[in-house]
């Protein structure tokens, strides 16, 4: 009997012990692999070759150039823009956004007070960019010189603000316009491509030379840029040379004169474009601004340069 009681005692012990072990095991946390930590910042390289680290999905954006504002609008994040400049006129909603100073003189104090997560500046903003850098405010500097640069800028801004997909579709849309124009223009033989004069300003005469995207647009639209043999960007051009080149099509965007006034300029009567009345006042913000509307700009130039292709 005693043996049996002892046995029972041992069994109870064993049972209690195994129960405890089970409970303990159950309480041990299961070993699971943790989910990969989402990075909270993103690093982009701007047009000055600087690496800029900023928070993902910045919610407070300041734009210091009209083309930057247009890109932000095109990729659908204008509602996150808290500061623009005095010349950010498109889209009209942008005119409601407070100004972070002027395009030529951004106000660093105002930008700081806007508490931006990211600032999109232009290459002319050297001093304010240095100041913002010193203050630790992320600044992405854009310096579009060519059409490829403009498209790259759209992607870059899209990447920086976390709207890559929208940016890529904007780029694709522009590329499809380019393809459409290029397909039509390809049928035009070289000798039928008219000399085109893009007038930036009339007194003195300023035009767009080889290193501008306006030159690229004119050539893509099936024209020959009158100043395409001049190195440089925007240059002063002599009237004697202009008469010699005798442009067949003239575009101007400065709106200092109506087309009628332009056609009656003294001494301009001998120029082919004036004689055939192929002088066009175009919206300079579409053509001259390195923004997402350059597809429209190309279309406008192409329709005027080769109207018969677009009937």
């Amino acid at each position: 009997m005693l043996e049996e009681a002892n046995m029972m005692k041992r069994l109870t012990y064993l049972a209690v012990l195994s129960l405890l072990a089970v409970v303990l095991l159950a309480c041990t946390p299961a070993v699971v692999t943790p989910p990969p930590v989402e990075p909270t910042t993103i690093t982009v390289v701007d047009d000055m070759g600087r690496e800029i680290t900023l928070n993902k999905n910045p919610q407070r954006i300041v734009s210091l150039a009209p083309s930057n504002t247009e890109i932000l609008f095109a990729i659908g994040v204008l509602d996150r823009v808290v500061g623009v400049t005095d010349v950010c006129l498109f889209p009209p909603e942008a005119q409601e956004i407070p100004h972070a100073g002027t395009f030529f003189q951004p106000s660093v104090e105002t930008i700081v007070s806007m508490k931006p997560d990211v600032v999109f500046a232009a290459s002319l903003h050297r001093e304010p960019v240095e100041q913002l850098d010193a203050l630790g405010i992320p600044v992405v500097v854009l310096d579009p010189q060519t059409i490829a640069d403009i498209l790259a800028n759209i992607s870059l801004i899209g990447e920086a603000v976390g709207a890559q997909a929208q940016a890529e579709s904007v780029v694709a849309e522009i590329l499809s316009v380019f393809a459409e124009v290029e397909a039509k223009v390809a049928t035009v033989p070289t000798e039928q491509r008219p000399v085109v004069f893009w007038e930036v300003w009339s007194d003195p005469i300023w035009t767009a030379a080889k290193a501008t995207f306006i030159h690229e647009l004119i050539e893509m639209a099936g024209g020959v840029n009158m100043a395409g043999d001049v190195d440089g960007t925007f240059v002063e051009y002599s009237f004697e040379m202009l008469i010699t080149k005798d442009p067949a099509v003239i575009f101007y965007g400065h709106a200092a004169e109506t087309v009628e006034e332009y056609l009656s300029r003294p001494n301009w009567g001998t120029i082919a474009a004036v004689q055939s009345k192929r002088v066009y006042l175009v919206d300079q913000d579409i053509v001259q601004q390195p923004g997402p509307r350059i597809g429209l700009g190309l279309m406008e130039l192409a329709r005027h340069i080769h109207p018969d292709l677009w009937k």
Binding site: V108, E109, V112, S113, K115, Q131, A134, L135, G136
Partner: peptide, 16 residues
């Protein structure tokens, strides 16, 4: 610390 300054503090001390 600098990271916690208000924008007024930054404007005053770092700029103005």
């Amino acid at each position: 610390p600098r990271a916690e300054w208000s924008s007024e503090a930054t404007i005053l001390w770092r700029l103005r």
